[in-house]
Design a protein around this nucleic acid. Structure first.
Lengths: 218, 218
DNA sequence: ACCCTACATTGATTCAGATCAATTTTAGGA
DNA sequence: TCCTAAAATTGATCTGAATCAATGTAGGGT
């Protein structure tokens, strides 16, 4: 597994961390099994996950996607119930948050990295909140595509190729839309010439600045 | 001013922090003037602020409210443009984020506190995203009231009094709704007997568990 | 105590996206 | 290669909140 320690920690803290979590293999579509009595910090060694919040009435909102090498905070004491689910075969390390933070206090570099990542997550979440609160379907999808391009896109001259690991339903659950609306907006962007698609998952972004414009980014 | 140091820092770091920021008095309705070239961490010494994100077309989304003693991260390199505005006369300390974090690395306790607060902000932001993405107007307002009760409510036997420092427009901008819809939902909750209001800002929550239920919390 | 202006409420109508309802396409397995 | 179930697309209709339009009210200033 792609290892957590090299990127964020050195020295004895690394050994102490290793004792806190067993590496786990999560199959596609399965939920990371964590003790529902405490918060967790989950490191995604390889693969892709989605963090899902459930509200009453079976409604689900995907709060974030995570790619290999990223760290997710999975809270338990919140208004909604959260779970982490694998979009593809995924390897994770799940640390009880309390224990992890306890070790981090005595490892300033590890703690600084954790803080940096948490701030990035916060800033992403805020940008997402703006989309959910104030943008229409087209802007939300454009914003999603630009964001994904930034994280997992393969840049080419003037354009960018995406291999999306998530379904239309996942995209809808992430953008607060239905699959039908997501599909219609894909068609719309395709007709405008801003994107091309092939199969279920490949998307070619032909003009990222124009998409960002369409996304309402300032 | 209520001081930052006692709560989160001791020793020499406190002195170094003091050198980074001048205390500022922000009048009601004014924006905290910060250098738009870098991220900031703003400590709210007294008063109340809102963090506003602007998307294109003059649309605004309030991403969070902050009360006295709280710390806000104001990012500059994001998809939307953020600013921090005072709801009432407010005293703040604005630290350039880079400098603050630089000092924090050598002050594990300060850094740990900063991390704890950032995680709280992230968890709040996620719960907000669920509301914006998947809840109807009534659930959003109920959720807002329960959340405010938690932060600034004055508990009584079985009920709770709120003195809201924000206008209906602010509430709408926070919940992704218009003032008219917010007003209608206040009336609705009033008629159901779940709340009572007096004047523009006082709200009495008569049954918080019922409101939480109405809010779709699980 | 009285204005006067912002703010809030209430009602009528419109519209973007949800919902309902068929197809059509995709990609993995026989 | 064909077959099939799941996923995606497209179309018709419905609905909750936005928008447009008055009207009512609170509370600071004189």
């Amino acid at each position: 597994m792609c290892c957590f320690e090299p990127s964020v920690s050195t020295g004895s803290g690394a050994n102490r961390l290793r004792g806190l979590a067993q590496p786990m293999d999560i199959r596609q579509g399965r939920t990371v099994p964590i003790d529902p009595a405490k918060d967790f910090l989950v490191f995604v060694g390889s693969g892709t996950t989605k963090l899902i919040a459930s509200a009453s009435g079976g409604r689900e909102q995907i709060v974030a996607f995570h790619f290999s090498g990223e760290l997710v905070s999975v809270p338990v004491n919140a208004w909604h119930s959260y779970r982490l689910s694998a979009l593809v075969q995924t390897e994770v390390l799940a640390f009880p948050a309390e224990d992890f933070l306890g070790i981090a206090v005595s490892e300033p570099v590890l703690q600084a990295e954790l803080l940096r990542r948490t701030m990035t997550a916060l800033h992403r979440c805020r940008d997402k909140a703006v989309g959910l609160g104030r943008k229409n379907a087209q802007e939300r999808l454009a914003s999603f595509l630009v964001g994904m391009a930034d994280r997992i896109g393969i840049a080419e001259e003037g354009s960018c190729t995406l291999e999306l690991p998530m379904s239309r339903r996942d995209i809808g659950d992430s953008l607060g839309l239905t699959i039908e609306t997501v599909s219609r907006q894909f068609s719309e962007l395709r007709m405008t010439g801003l994107i091309e698609t092939s199969g279920r998952s490949r998307v070619l972004l032909r003009d990222i600045p124009a998409l960002a414009e369409r996304a309402g980014h300032v």
